[in-house]
Simulated scan of single mutants.
Amino acid sequence: MEGETLDGRYKLGEELGRGAHGVVYKATDLEAGAEVAVKLLRGPIQGAPEAAARLLREAQALASLWGTSVLRVHAAGPSPEGGVFVVTELVEGESLEAHLQDLAVFDDRLSSYNLLTLLDPIARALHTAHAQGLLHRDVKPANVFLVSPERGGGVRLLDFGVAPVLGAEALRASDTLRGSACYVAPEAWHDGALDHRADVYAFGALVFRALAGRPPFQGESAADLAEATQRAPRPRLSPLRADLAPEIDAWAERALAADPNQRFPYIPTLWNDLIRVMMNGRGPSADRVRQTFRLPG
């Protein structure tokens, strides 16, 4: 693919990475003379050119989120192989998933302060999107990108608008150990309409993963994972994190509730309650949380 030009405008360069749903290339926008990233989506979207139009509509709707941590989408279209390509801003760094895996090598976890600092822009972006009726549908550590300090730092939320094109089945069928399936809300295992509370669940599962070093539920198969997500007792964090206040277990139970009506209703309610719990923790990280973060009211 390197050297190929898409849509007569985007010349593909080196491959930057690949995942369950596509391959990402560094590319040059020949019209703007700027470096961009191009993601080629694959899988069940093959042979479905209408997916490109849908993705472009999603990208246009996401223009209202510019200024948040959502990765900017510049264009989308059908690829020569019958799939779909997405053109975004080019960022350099590593995913939160990769960062968590690096920490795990040393049996380490994100501190409460570092977690709140990293994910606060993501929580704000999701809240802004939900207020405009936009859902992400694939919130997970691999879709949170930590921009390198040399490129300005900060975080980006990736793949907004991609999940509807891939389809729910593709997400549920992904790697059940670390992929999208670990963050799929219980109600999303059944086809049907979803609302913002599916993102609330996924974001809660992401926080759990960052604090515990593993997703809240795992399974040898998608069926096992679906069963656990919907029926197993909600996991506890307190046995794994002595630095956190005991209330973290009640937070996790509500964030990961199988019934959407028992879940935190919105991202801000989940996030503010997490900050409150973190403020009640112990150690230097909890001290920094108390000094830095403020609760509304």
Rank of each mutant, 00 (worst) to 15 (best):
D273Q: 15
L244G: 10
V70G: 00
A205Y: 09
E4M: 14
G3L: 05
E150C: 00
E81T: 09
G3V: 08
V70A: 13
G17L: 10
R172Q: 14
L90T: 04
R236T: 11
S79H: 05
A210I: 05
P141Q: 01
I275L: 09
R9F: 09
G161L: 06
H190Y: 03
R209A: 14
R263H: 06
S180A: 15
P246G: 11
T88P: 02
R276Q: 15
L40F: 03
L171R: 08
D120E: 15
L158D: 03
A168T: 08
W251A: 11
L256R: 04
G19P: 09
R209L: 05
D138P: 12
Q262H: 14
H74A: 13
I248C: 12
F106Y: 14
G47M: 04
P284G: 13
T88Y: 02
G179E: 10
L194G: 01
P296G: 12
A286M: 02
A188T: 04
A205L: 06
A142Y: 02
P141Y: 06
L134I: 15
T269R: 14
V165Q: 03
F160D: 00
V84G: 06
P215D: 09
L110C: 13
A34K: 14
L146A: 04
I275S: 07
S112I: 07
F293P: 01
P235Y: 02
A223T: 14
P216A: 09
S221R: 13
Q101D: 10
E4A: 14
L55N: 03
R178E: 13
D287C: 00
A20V: 03
Q46Y: 02
Q60N: 09
L110T: 14
R234L: 13
T28P: 00
G153E: 12
L206P: 03
V207R: 05
D287Y: 06
F217S: 06
V38F: 04
R137S: 08
R263F: 06
G213N: 07
L146K: 10
L6W: 12
R178C: 01
A257E: 02
R276W: 10
T229Y: 00
E150A: 15
P44K: 01
L41E: 03
R276D: 15
V155E: 04
A286E: 08
P141T: 08
A202S: 15
T229L: 11
A255W: 12
S180G: 10
Q101N: 04
I275R: 02
A163S: 09
G154F: 04
V144A: 05
G219V: 07
G33D: 06
P44Q: 03
N114V: 13
T68E: 02
D195W: 10
